[in-house]
Design a binder for these strands. Sequence first.
DNA 1: CTGAAAGCGCTTACAG
DNA 2: CTGAAAGCGCTTACAG
Lengths: 327, 327
Amino acid sequence: MSDVARLARVTPMTVSRALRTPALVSKATLARVEAAIVKTGFVPNYVAGSLSSSHSRIIVAIVPTIMNSVFSGMIEGLSEVLRSRNYQLLLGSTNFDLDVEEKLLREFLGWRPAGIVVTGRRHTRGARTMLINSGVPVVETWHLDGEPMDTVVGFSNYNAAYEMARSLIGWGYRKIALIYISAHNNDRSIARRDGYRKALADAGRKLDPGLECEVKFGVGAGRGAAARLLEARPDVDAIMCASDALAAGVLMECMRRGYSVPKDIAVTGFGDVELSAELVPSLTTVHLPRNEIGRRTAQVLLDRIAGDLPAASRYDCGFTIVRRESA
Amino acid sequence: MSDVARLARVTPMTVSRALRTPALVSKATLARVEAAIVKTGFVPNYVAGSLSSSHSRIIVAIVPTIMNSVFSGMIEGLSEVLRSRNYQLLLGSTNFDLDVEEKLLREFLGWRPAGIVVTGRRHTRGARTMLINSGVPVVETWHLDGEPMDTVVGFSNYNAAYEMARSLIGWGYRKIALIYISAHNNDRSIARRDGYRKALADAGRKLDPGLECEVKFGVGAGRGAAARLLEARPDVDAIMCASDALAAGVLMECMRRGYSVPKDIAVTGFGDVELSAELVPSLTTVHLPRNEIGRRTAQVLLDRIAGDLPAASRYDCGFTIVRRESA
DNA sequence: CTGAAAGCGCTTACAG
DNA sequence: CTGAAAGCGCTTACAG
């Protein structure tokens, strides 16, 4: 910056102003500074800028995994808005492990981010302490149920699963099984399971533990669970899955075994990724506004940073039951 | 840090040493400092550390999109290794637009990263200048063909497509169509198309422009292209796709139209994402070592930063033709 | 509209 | 093994 200043015959302070508040600099000076910047190929040092201004323009986001369109959709929405406002995304994935979340958080906090995004509402005690003491806005995403720590952006996993199960009941299915992702430390997963149970109970159906399969995530896990379920419980006429990937696996297993979907058995997903609409049969699922969750999260964070917004708000981005061919 | 120092009755310099080179601090002092760190909840300020040491522990990575298992697989490999060595990933996606790449690069360079990862070998003139002048190691990934700028980690898209096309010929297919992602500014895509053409030419087949479909990426694009191809060219007996997502779309369209794969028509992909092995029929495709590309890239970068490695190397992570049911 | 001084929180490069 | 001084490249908070 002092090189630029010398070339433009001003002090570094004026270069800094030309960059940040050009309105406060005279036209002639501004032109000289801009020419000098181009000539020197100067790139402002954000590290120095952040240190002296105590404001980093870095937003930290922690997700379970980016190997899933659901989360990458949110990340794309998030980073798009942030980039347009000259904020940068520091991204970490926990592989669904809350201890990893805590470690990532500790590392990331060293960069003194201007805001933090985490997934879900369950955190280790250490992580919770760091989040509260961080002194910056924190947004918890995806999971709306329960008492928020600061701000929450997402939808109700409980309600979404409840509605899907209720829809299946409404469509006439009698034995509805559930395949869901390991609920260990995963509050979204627990909520989906509980929503399913409540819908069945509300319809006067007896809960049947043999109809619930807890598995790892992924297409392969869905196939495996479907295989076991179809063998053990030929009375099942619908399989509700807590993710589209699981449902795709179930669909494939049904196809392998010569079951016709939805005639012999109905299948539903959760998430509505691109593939789901293209599958044969196309997948009945819960549409989640992934991109909007990301964009809204970014917006809230930026407004909070600007001081335009009170803490502790709650944004429900909603969900939609999308009925297609598979149920 | 001075709070910690006061509590431990040492100077900040000793706290810094206790954190970075504990071997140079006496046992007793170390214990006092550690206790003080816990008591104060001190989190080192990396912004200040980077500024004073002129070393940031930030690695910048720019990919076309994270909405694709292929790239997210690389990112996971990359960030896993980086995290284990206490480096952070600053991630950007260009949406396949080289101008966006240049803008991202300009922003990211402000953080004075310790290394840079880009996708492909084609960049705007401005981006190329910034990369060369950055003064830090640069790794270009995915695309091995041609003259490297600095270091390259990936595989030969040309060879992979060539081998797949040659395999199809060897398996007895006569009219092999190609569906590939828009080649505009996408060197990987161009190389795949050229590899396909060369394999056909080497087998003495005449090139037929009507057999090549250039489309956008995604399952839907694959379905659309398949629909057009199947209508226009009933003589086609194999469709080679330049990505697994395209191939999944083709498979779905074939199913809709009652074509039996591979009896009526063969389909192949490129990438080998998780779904591909589970599809019915399972997809014959090119397996890419996505995770390894990421890990190797991280390794090279870290070695280069440590000064253990000469510039301008070339790492071929290879590929494998995986024959499954679809061809 | 522009500048001189001080400081952000660390690390480097000595000195002892 | 520990510390005092200087500096990393900016911005803040004045002063003029």
